[in-house]
Design a binder for these strands. Structure first.
Lengths: 260, 260
DNA sequence: GAAGTGGTGG
DNA sequence: CCACCACTTC
C-alpha cells in the first residue's frame, strides 16, 4: 500500500501534471493540498477514468484538500468538528482537514496554516490550529491504532530539513514555538516515516518559486507522513519524488510517497 | 514585396507564434496591432535576429502598433499629429497609428477603435476617430501616390464579410455610420486589395474567442489593406492565412498578406 | 514567482 | 473567452 502527499498549488492549473504523475505512480491513496477550488468545480473525471474515488473538501481561491483513492474509503469526514463537535465551527471554514479509512488504516490529510511570519496574527492562528489538531488526533487515536497523518505541515522540524543560509531560529516554518507544537503532537505516538529510512539532511519537498530556489536547491522538507507505531513498523520506504519540480509550470511542492 | 497585417492581441503572449509565422512567411513588412506593451518592453531581439527593423508605438495594457520591416523604413512617424500638428494631442494618447515609407510606398498601420456598442461613448469616439483618420490620409495623399493603409479596422463593409446569424444593421463593426465613415475615407482614392482577387463571401480575419466562434466559423473580415490606384494595379495577391487561429492560445485575428 | 480574486476591454 | 490591471497569499 502506497500513500502519497502532494501540495499541488491549484488542481486546475496542475491537472495534467498530476494525472500524468498518477498514471506512472499508481499509488493507493493520493492526498492533495491547496486544490484551490470548490468541490463542484474539481476536475473529477480524469481521476475517475484512472479508476480512483474522490473525497473533496475544497474552497474558493485558498486551501482545500482531497483524498484520491483506488479503493473506496470508509468513515470519510471533513474538518476538525467531525470528531470535535464542541469546537467552534469557524475552525472548519478554511478547508484544511480530510480523513478516511482504508484497510483499517486511517489517513489524515492536512494542510497546516502557513503562518506568514513569526509574530503575526497568522502565526498565532497557526499555533492555535496546531493545538486543535493535537486534540483532534488524540481523539482519533482512541479508536484507531493505525493512523497515517500526512500533508503539508509548513514546518521543518530539524536544521537538516532546511537548506543552509536561513536564520533557522525565528523563520516561519522553523520557529521554536511551531516546532514545539508539532513535537507535542508527535509525542501522542507518531513518528516520521521519512526518517526511518534516511538520516542525512539535504532532502527537501518544497522550494520557493522565488530567487531560483529550486535551481540552487534552497529547499525545505515540510511535507510529511507521521505514523503510529504499528504502521511505522510496517513502513517499507518513504521517497521524495523531485521530478515534477523540474517540469515547466510546476507546483512548488513535490510528492512524498510512503509504502507499507 | 509582401506586406502583412496582424492583430496579435499581446505580443508578449504571442511572441513565439509570431516569430514562428514570420520565419515561415518572411514578408517585407509586418504590421502588428494590439501589441499591448510599452516600447521599452517590446521583445525586440527575436525579430532582429531574423534580420528585421522595428518601429514601435506601444502603450501599457491596450492598443499599440508596430512596423516590422526587413529593410529600414524612412519617414517613420507615430500618431495623427505628425501630419496634423494642429490636432489636439489627446488624439494620440491611444497608440493606434504608425507609418513609414519603403521603396516610395507609404505604409500606414492602424488599429481602429472597437467602439464597444452602437450608441455608446466609445462608438462616438470611433466615428470621430475615423473623421480624423480621413483628414490624416487626405494629407498623406498630397505627397505620396503609393499608399497602403492596413490594419485592424474593426469594420466589415459588406454583409458577405460577416457570417450570417448577426443582426447586421446596428451591430458594432457593421453599423451604417461606421461603414459610411469608412466609405468616406475610401472615396479619397483607396480600394480593398482583398476584393481585387476574391469576390465571394465567407472569408474572415477575426473570430470572437467566445461561443466557439472559430470552430463554428462565425467570423468577420475586419482586417484590411486599402491601396491607392498605383498600388492596387500592382497588387498580385491578397491572402488570409487562417492557420495561426488553429494553434493553442491563438490571437483572435489572423494575418492578411498583400503582395505587389 | 506563481497561484488566486474581481475588474475592464475586446 | 482571453488579454490586461492591481491586489492578496504563500
Amino acid at each position: 500500500m502506497k500513500i502519497a502527499t502532494w501540495n499541488v498549488n491549484s488542481i486546475r492549473i496542475r491537472l495534467e501534471q498530476v494525472i500524468d504523475w498518477l498514471s506512472k505512480n499508481p499509488v493507493d491513496v493520493l492526498c492533495l493540498q491547496e486544490i484551490k477550488v470548490v468541490d463542484a468545480e474539481f476536475p473529477r473525471s480524469p481521476f475517475e477514468q484512472l479508476g480512483y474515488h474522490l473525497y473533496l473538501s475544497g474552497q474558493k481561491s485558498y486551501n482545500g484538500v482531497a483524498l484520491i483513492s483506488r479503493q473506496p474509503l470508509v468513515d470519510v469526514s471533513n474538518g476538525f468538528t467531525a470528531f470535535l463537535p464542541k469546537l467552534q465551527p469557524e475552525w472548519d471554514e478554511q478547508k484544511r482537514v480530510i480523513t478516511g479509512v482504508i484497510d483499517k488504516i486511517r489517513i489524515v490529510n492536512l494542510y497546516v496554516p502557513n503562518g506568514a511570519a513569526v509574530g503575526t496574527e497568522k502565526y498565532e492562528y497557526k499555533l492555535r490550529w496546531l493545538k486543535v489538531l493535537r486534540e483532534y488526533l488524540q481523539l482519533l487515536l482512541l479508536s484507531q491504532p493505525a493512523i497515517c497523518v500526512c500533508g503539508d505541515f509548513n514546518i521543518a522540524l530539524e536544521a537538516k530539513d532546511i537548506h543552509e543560509q536561513v536564520s533557522t531560529n525565528n523563520h516561519i516554518m522553523a520557529s521554536e514555538l511551531e516546532r514545539q507544537a508539532l513535537r507535542d503532537i508527535l509525542t501522542l505516538g507518531f513518528a516520521d516515516a521519512f526518517r526511518k529510512f534516511t538520516t542525512e539532511g539535504g532532502h527537501y519537498s518544497w522550494w520557493d518559486y522565488r530567487a531560483a530556489a529550486f535551481r540552487r536547491n534552497l529547499g525545505w522538507r515540510i511535507d510529511h507522513h507521521y505514523l503510529t507505531p504499528v504502521l511505522y513498523e510496517r513502513a517499507k520506504s518513504c521517497i521524495i519524488d523531485v521530478a515534477p519540480r523540474k517540469l515547466t509550470q510546476p507546483s512548488d511542492h513535490v510528492p512524498v510517497i510512503v509504502e507499507f
